[in-house]
Simulated assay, not measured.
Amino acid sequence: MYFCGDCKKQFQGGRRIDSTTLWQSYLTEKRTVKELSVMHKCSERTIRRKLKLVAESFNPSFPKEATVIIDTTYFSRTFGVMLFQDATSGKILYRKFVKNETNKEYLSGLEDIKDGGTKIVAVVCDGHTGLL
């Protein structure tokens, strides 16, 4: 913390971590929390807090119809993110943090997409049967 003697305000010094860039590194580059903490020279707790801020600010979009690609990416044995993506636009329609992927979780996500007003044309998934 820095204190200005003239205006009597406090300022934080150091580099700021952009939460959106951090989220992209976490998801697309499949970096672990530990790797990100070393890269940004901060604690793992700070990285988790920044990721949580971005994850909570997610706003899904619902097109009229979509071919949905679904998959789960794991970052540890008990933590993964289940993503439902529109094949045409590439936008994320739904996401959920899970401990393990089950058909029940997939069906729940598909129902949420349907409730949003999207007609599901097809579902692309890696080996799960009985989804539609």
Rank of each mutant, 00 (worst) to 15 (best):
M1F: 12
G5N: 13
G5C: 08
G5F: 10
D6E: 14
D6R: 14
D6V: 13
C7W: 11
K8L: 12
K9N: 14
F11C: 00
Q12Y: 05
G14W: 09
R15W: 10
R16M: 13
S19F: 05
T21Q: 13
L22V: 03
Q24F: 15
Y26R: 00
E29F: 12
V33G: 02
K34D: 08
E35R: 09
M39N: 08
K41E: 15
T46M: 09
T46D: 00
I47R: 00
K50M: 15
L51G: 00
L51R: 01
A55D: 13
E56C: 07
S61H: 12
E65I: 06
T73D: 12
V81Q: 03
V81N: 03
D86N: 14
A87Q: 15
A87I: 05
A87K: 15
T88E: 15
S89F: 08
G90N: 11
G90D: 11
I92P: 01
Y94C: 05
K96L: 02
V98K: 02
E101Y: 04
E101N: 03
N103G: 13
K104N: 01
Y106T: 01
Y106V: 10
G109T: 05
D112E: 14
G117N: 06
V124W: 05
D126Y: 02
G130Q: 04
L132P: 07
